[in-house]
């Protein structure tokens, strides 16, 4: 199935989506990598207010190239980064912020799949490296946080997107994890190969 989603979306819509479905997204997405995940969780646990309401946006594992032109930020390239690095944070992140769409590449593991099932979220993959394709779907840089402290790749870039995709859902809220299934099968095939 192919879906065009306008953010924010509710639980009902998330439950309709299955692993293997293709999505195009409209609305606000926010970039967050290792450092941003860590900082957001630490701030939440310290009772501090976060600059972004992560429940209303999709979180995008991405460290973009952005340049300043006059008063505006211009996105040069913005493909996804490897999501498995965020595996150590994602359960705690989803539990605290109730983000319902995580976007990245390469797939995520058991803990993220568990969070997606428990808190009704999905993980979807954008084609890795397709940074110009992604940048073309980003219409505006709405805001940026933590830029001085974390630097360009790790900052929270708040982006307005239109038809952002195609995204392939690999983890749904029903417990399926497509990339793990592929990997498991590959392990079985590899075990039988004799050189």
């Amino acid at each position: 199935m192919e879906y065009r989603l306008s953010l924010p979306i509710g639980e009902e819509e998330i439950m309709k989506i299955n692993a293997g479905d293709v999505l195009y997204i409209n609305g606000t997405i926010v970039t967050a990598r290792d450092e941003a995940h860590k900082k957001a969780i630490e701030m939440y646990d310290a009772g501090k207010t976060l600059p972004v309401d992560f429940s209303k946006v999709a979180v995008f594992h991405c460290g973009p190239i952005i340049k300043r032109e006059g008063d505006e930020w211009q996105v040069v390239a913005a493909g996804p980064t490897t999501s498995s690095r965020m595996e150590i944070f994602e359960y705690d992140f989803i539990k605290r912020f109730h983000t319902c769409i995580i976007i990245g590449k390469g797939g995520m593991g058991e803990k993220t799949a568990k969070a997606c099932k428990e808190f009704k979220a999905i993980y979807a993959a954008f084609t890795g490296g397709a940074a110009v394709l992604a940048a073309n779907a980003i219409k505006k840089v709405k805001d940026v946080f933590w830029l001085d402290e974390l630097g360009m790749p790790e900052a929270l870039w708040v982006l307005e997107v239109e038809n952002f995709g195609p995204l392939t859902v690999t983890i749904d809220a029903h417990g399926r994890n497509l990339t793990e299934e592929v990997k498991q099968k590959a392990r079985e095939i590899a075990a039988k190969i004799e050189f």
């Binding site: 493909g79 490296g129 940074a131 073309n136 392939t168």
Partner: peptide, 27 residues
Amino acid sequence: VAKAQLMAILKNVELARKQKKPMCQDT
């Protein structure tokens, strides 16, 4: 799905050349 990924990659390669932008944000 694999074909769709490769099509996106090839389109991206073309766009990068046309728009003179890095093909991947991780330079």
